[in-house]
Design a protein around this nucleic acid. Structure first.
Lengths: 194, 194
DNA sequence: GATTCTAATTAAACTAGTTTAATAAATATT
DNA sequence: AATATTTATTAAACTAGTTTAATTAGAATC
């Protein structure tokens, strides 16, 4: 087990206890890969074979429909991610996973991930708990979208993930917030006047 | 194992194979309960001890903030649900789970659910996969909220869950869609003119 | 350093929602 | 059946966003 996977190991153990032998079994399948800004992990039409852990960097998950880029999520250090629906259903992706900043990513194939879950009850539990956490995060995001104004959500993003604004152009953040670039610019102007 | 749990058993098996003995072990902890319209499974201030499966009926998951009712979800037949965040974190709920239609619910305590996951790798996998499905559903809901107009989302709800409109007053559906009752009424009027 | 290209802001006209209040239609109660 | 209560609609004024287009600012390239 290469030492570079220490942070992934820590992340897993933050969810549930895992024996050293199970951990070693699981981590052996992960490959460390580096990507340059502008590269794609996923493009429309592809089948999703892999599951990812972002060690360092940033990837943007988006679609383009009728020429409009729609950002669904930015994944940064410490996040697990993939294009989950096509990954599960083994259908073609309709999305992009584009590296937005030079990144180090740990990659495990779906086949290997299933082996890991088969082999270790503890790691299956980790899978359940990490999915549970992702569920809760999404649920809370829905509530923010429904219950807060766009201005409030902009301010909250600025507070909770300030580094995004260094990493990613503003029009992508606007899309993530469900706004046009013009709309976000107006909000910023309104706020700067106070 | 009482025969009344057949549909829960089927639901679980729709996710992953489970041996009869594991299934029997798991199902023994579920209690069948009936509730009348207007009863509450959860109210603000309570700790969440239980996880639920809706056999028949409807429950509305909402908060009241500054006098405004905000509907997060309607759970109907075949859904697993609870107020997950306080359930996990063992903090007080801030929400209501109100029975909106006479219902039959299967209930398992958190303690028993943990016993089940400890005892059976297969049922832990079921837990992972059901959570994964819930995650995907929420993710797709976020995308609908972000990418569709309110009118489109109203039409889609009408198409996908028509029975909701029989079960639940319109102002709660408006809230679920992130609209005021006035706003939803306007959309309906606009559509009826076509 | 000048040029080119991309991103962000601004302006103007527009739109789909909001709020508040009044009215109408259903539903529940006596 | 009559009354009270709750729910849904309508109207009017307002607002936070949109779209389109022009302008400015910032980055990258030659």
């Amino acid at each position: 087990m290469p030492d570079t996977l220490k942070d992934l190991e820590q992340k897993i153990r933050s969810f549930t206890p895992v024996s050293d032998s199970d951990m070693e079994f699981g981590l052996q399948f992960y490959k460390r890969k580096t990507f340059k800004k502008g590269q794609f992990l996923v493009q429309p039409g592809q089948y999703i074979r892999d599951f990812y852990f972002m060690k360092q960097g940033c990837v943007t998950f988006y679609t383009i429909e009728e020429g409009i880029t729609r950002v669904m999520e930015f994944y940064t250090s410490g996040s697990f991610f993939t294009d989950l629906y096509p990954y599960i259903e083994e259908i073609q992706s309709e999305s992009y996973l584009e590296i937005t900043e030079d990144s180090i990513v740990y990659v495990i194939s779906k086949l290997d991930a299933l082996k890991v879950f088969d082999h270790s009850h503890a790691l299956e539990r980790f899978g359940r708990l990490s999915m549970q956490k992702a569920f809760i995060n999404n649920f809370q995001r829905i509530n923010r979208i429904k219950n807060l104004s766009n201005q409030e959500r902009y301010l909250q993003l600025l507070e909770k993930r300030p580094s995004l604004f260094q990493r990613v152009p503003q029009y992508l953040i606007a899309s993530y917030l469900g706004l046009t670039p013009v709309g976000l610019s107006k909000i910023r102007k309104r706020l700067s006047k106070k």
